[in-house]
Design a binder for these strands. Structure first.
Lengths: 229, 229
DNA sequence: GCCCAACTTTGCGCTATAGCAAACTTTGGG
DNA sequence: CCCAAAGTTTGCTATAGCGCAAAGTTGGGC
């Protein structure tokens, strides 16, 4: 495990107020790992004894129902903390974390959480801000699922994805990690069939462009209209 | 505004580790208010400059969609903190708080939040535990809405309500605040019509008993079965 | 005690979407 | 280069639950 550079962490909100020696200490306490796409980093319900920072890639936060269905509650882009059960006063992870693409991440034992919170200025507040954003996103999901049609929900899901982890290309904005119809259906509470039909018809209309495991939004503006403002 | 008794707060989790003089100080800084059923305590999006504790009654946490539809994301029973935007690093309330019944509550200016968190042992951790529980509840909602049918969702909603604020009566367990079909539909993402039909048929089967603005669960066990284990 | 507004019930038709099924396509590995 | 596995498309059918409409019921305020 070779030494990581301080510049990795210094631009990230939770650490932005710290000086290099502080970041050095934090890095030296971290374990760094790489994971292939589709690997599970931690499992729902298991003892939460570490917290994580995603350096590269995307993480899917997934819940599994008693009858085996998967529901994706959140996507975590690079640069964010995850698995922060401590911030929610929990000693067990509320959901599983699965890599959507190849990922690089750091982790620390929970025993360090308190010292991070108390000794590093800005860490606590930025963390709770992140929690707040996720709570907000979940809330939005609930509202959407209660009031909107599948078409609008899928449109919004795509918009959220390109917003959060879009990559500009010649044809439009591409979702920067592999994503299947199935994945989208798990994010929107539908079936892969419906997603497939919808994407096909959008592709005919030039709204999107999709290959296997890949979605490119060509006309974000019209998608916004479809999503119901 | 007469003085409140320390025994009001001492059994509540966020304050349970404090001694009477500490609670006295906290109480003396609080403003106490009463609200009728249906009153809005604070509005989604408005500046979050106070935080609250519900002493009596029930609060509905409500979001309103651009086209005026209401979605209830949470119910808060007596004894819990609410409007704790600070804990989520926000400076604006993420949803509106509406009283479901007559309510009694305390509130403090946000400027005191930090001192509460730092000077009162247990306050921070208990608060974040509460946040964690709510996050969990929201997650559950999302999973339910994604995978379950209306019947199951409504069954669960009722079970959750009697669990959280049920009152034992001769006929069964009664939801301890006035609740309409409309309210239930806003909690489950359906229409009042569907809720009405379902409640009627459940009443025929002896599962529930409902009057105007009142629901009593007679056979919780069979309701659990309906909810899909 | 009566009236009105707020709730509730119920019927009917419609449609968005799930469910099922089967064929097709892509891709990576042996 | 071919095969298997994973992902995608598409057609058909069934139906849950919504939207609309209209009539009933309840209870609080005057």
């Amino acid at each position: 495990m070779h030494s990581l550079d301080e510049s990795l962490l210094s631009p990230l909100p939770p650490f932005s107020m710290l000086d290099r020696p502080q970041i050095r200490t934090i890095l030296d306490q971290a374990i760094s790992r790489r994971a292939n796409a589709g690997e599970t980093i931690f499992e729902e319900g298991s003892a939460a004894n570490r917290f994580f920072l995603l350096l590269d890639g995307t993480i899917r936060v997934v819940k599994i129902t008693p009858d085996g269905e998967q529901v994706t509650s959140l996507h975590i882009p690079a640069g964010q903390l995850f698995g922060i059960a401590q911030a929610l006063g929990r000693d067990t992870y509320p959901a599983s974390a699965v890599t959507a693409s190849e990922a690089l991440y750091l982790s620390w034992p929970n025993s360090l959480w308190n010292s991070f919170v108390t000794t590093y200025p800005g860490f606590a507040s930025e963390t709770y801000k992140a929690v707040g954003k996720r709570v907000n996103e979940m809330n939005t999901r609930i509202v959407e699922m209660s009031t909107q049609h599948v078409e609008q929900r899928i449109a919004r899901a795509l918009l959220r994805l390109i917003n959060q982890s879009g990559r500009r290309t010649a044809e439009g904005i591409e979702i920067s990690f592999p994503i299947t119809r199935q994945d989208v259906s798990q994010m929107t509470g539908t079936t892969l069939h419906t997603v497939s039909r919808l994407l096909s018809s959008w592709e005919k209309d030039g709204l999107v462009l999709s290959k296997r495991k890949k979605i490119i939004v060509c006309d974000a503006h019209r998608l916004v209209l479809l999503s119901g403002e």
